[in-house]
Design a protein around this nucleic acid. Structure first.
Lengths: 366, 366
DNA sequence: TTGAAAGCGTTACCAC
DNA sequence: GTGGTAACGCTTTCAA
């Protein structure tokens, strides 16, 4: 029972890490079997008060910390109490908010979260999924980057449940929690139309990203609903960052037939668009409604009207579903839609500056 | 060698997870010993071409994925290829940026990151540190919430290195990577003074948070350097969120002797201050320099002058140090300081609106 | 170059 | 109630 307490070596001796105490050490010190120690740690009731006490004291004395990895290795359910959260980029506001919601829910299950950024790279998605399964996470929450998720069949079959958030699975039946993208986009564009705009542009991110596709559908539905034509060049895709969005807006404004209102279908696109409008002094002239709220939206001038997603709600719902799967739920995969909310702040209520509409033109709102 | 491939059960039969293939299965299928399989997987060169081939094929056929936990359990170094990143809140911009930098560096070491939010709660810090050690992470990167870190002695002695980021350890000698807080704050306040301000307020977050203390020291140093008096009530503490900051600014503006410039010593404080100035139409009158940049700072009106921290740099340096420790470095703990940069954008160059200073008053810059 | 056996720290099974 | 023994999936040691 040699469980020496480190006296921090001799002079110059880099204090070697002491061997961690094991259940064996605890058992020896408290004079019980290793199995009893296990019982105490796992809160099994059938242990006498006295033994429980002795064991507890030994644990404290040795600073024993059970090895979760060893435990999960032996356990029947093999749970590691870790889930993986794979998303676009932990540094962007959407992902960061999602991440926090997931962490909070996971905490209630005594589970830690391994977060990984995919940067819209399908290969990275597969790498990180693989890394996660190598670590035997209990489940994976995925905001996918890739266009096809058939490869996940194997992981799911191997017992790692996967739940999709924000974007649906393709080539695979799996749970998904998504925003009501089409409906939210439709409301945004109707809002602009109802403020007199007939020339409304669509600016979206990657054309292969399902959310962008759905939001475009909503945009089109709204135009159709108001009997507005879809002009060529009015819908622009693949704006992956604020810079490309800013350039796209600049190009539109330079065209023969510039839009009087913009529907920006993603966070960073909205920011890029605003940057161009500000640079040209048009932020009071051109109306903007963005999809997805962002931190300073209500401090800009004008304040930015957005279709806000319930990001935390998406995360909470998705992680709940994931834990249901982890708990053994084998019901058919479900898709859940989380509603959006139009947040009116100013930029979306700017009337058309000139031209086709007969309403008040020109002046920016105060 | 019964390693059935799942044919997705009968109707209604919830497809039970197939038992995962183990090295044993691979060994059996390829007709070699389990040890040879281990050699192939770990890239040990002393395996004949032919056996290597047979094993590789069996691995692919069985979709074998080595169990990292089991491996780490037996390995001499016990590495789990996981580190914990414990910080304020994964959802705030500072933490999110840090998180991303850490993730990128960890990836190069084939290591996954367990992220956890502390919410400035010392107890949560200890809980999460404990959770991390239960999972036997290879190391911990900590932006501490608590005032004392003596409890970490034990973890470090037990072989889990800890590196501090953004805030130094107390009651413990450990590596730390910090911003040059005092110097950055000093530059900010000198900048305001050099634009004619003599009435400069300090607005900081928690008074027990070391960064806030250091930034106040910088503020004072700058005042002293310019021969400016420190007026009572000019320095306010414990502004934990934008709302409380907004209220503090409102109170200051309502006082007999309102400041003409604000030095906001933290992100969220800056945002709260701006909110109040905007609400009162004073954003063109009262100068503001914030500590720590934030996403939309250059889109606000006026654009916000800040002392930018090199957050990614802090993360990169800290995680590098951590991996050095993990690799066995036993040199004495070091403190590294990462320089800040003054980013001039407009809000910090507004001259005093009235009163004591003889320069141009009143008008906001264009 | 290859393999048999022991063991990492824990839990499961089955006796007592 | 309590404990021995086997086993989880892998690496290590040592022998062939």
């Amino acid at each position: 029972m040699r469980v020496s307490v480190n006296h921090s070596g001799g002079p110059g001796a880099a204090s070697e890490p002491v061997r961690r105490a094991t259940m064996r050490d605890v058992a020896a010190l408290s004079g019980v079997s290793i199995k009893t120690v296990s019982r105490v740690i796992n809160g099994v009731p059938s242990v006498s008060e006295e033994l429980r006490d002795r064991v507890t004291r030994a644990i404290a004395r040795l600073d024993f910390q059970p090895n979760l990895a060893a435990s999960s290795l032996r356990r029947t359910d093999g749970a590691t109490r870790q889930i993986a959260l794979l998303l676009e980029d932990v540094a962007n506001p959407f992902s960061a908010t999602l991440s926090r919601a997931v962490e909070d829910a996971a905490r209630e299950h005594g589970t830690l979260v391994l977060a990984g950024s995919l940067d819209e790279d399908p290969q990275r998605e597969r790498e990180l999924v693989r890394a996660a399964t190598l670590h035997r996470v209990d489940g994976i929450l995925l905001v996918p980057a890739g266009p096809d998720h058939g490869y996940l069949h194997r992981e799911i079959r191997n017992g790692t449940p996967v739940v999709f958030a924000d974007r649906p699975p393709r080539g695979l039946a799996a749970d998904a929690v998504l925003s009501a993208n089409a409906e939210g986009a439709r409301r945004a564009v109707l809002h602009l139309a109802d403020h007199g705009h007939t020339e409304i542009a669509f600016l979206g991110d990657g054309h292969r990203i399902s959310t962008a596709v759905e939001r475009l559908a909503g945009y089109r539905a709204a135009l159709a609903e108001r009997g507005l034509p879809e002009r060529p060049g009015r819908a622009v895709w693949d704006l992956s960052d604020p810079r490309s969005a800013a350039e796209a807006v600049a190009a539109m404004l330079d065209s023969d037939d510039p839009p009087t209102a913009l529907f920006t279908a993603q966070n960073l696109v909205t920011i890029g668009a605003i940057r161009t409008l500000q640079a040209r002094g048009l932020h009071g002239e051109v109306a903007v409604v963005g999809f997805d709220d962002f931190p300073m939206a209500d401090l800009l001038m004008p304040r930015v009207t957005v279709v806000a997603q319930d990001v935390a709600g998406i995360g909470a719902l998705a992680v709940r579903r994931l834990f249901e799967r982890i708990a053994g739920d084998t019901s058919p995969p479900r898709e859940e839609r989380v509603p959006t909310a139009l947040v009116v702040r100013g930029s979306g209520e700017i009337p058309p500056a000139a031209g086709r509409w007969s309403g008040a033109g020109g002046s920016a709102p105060r």
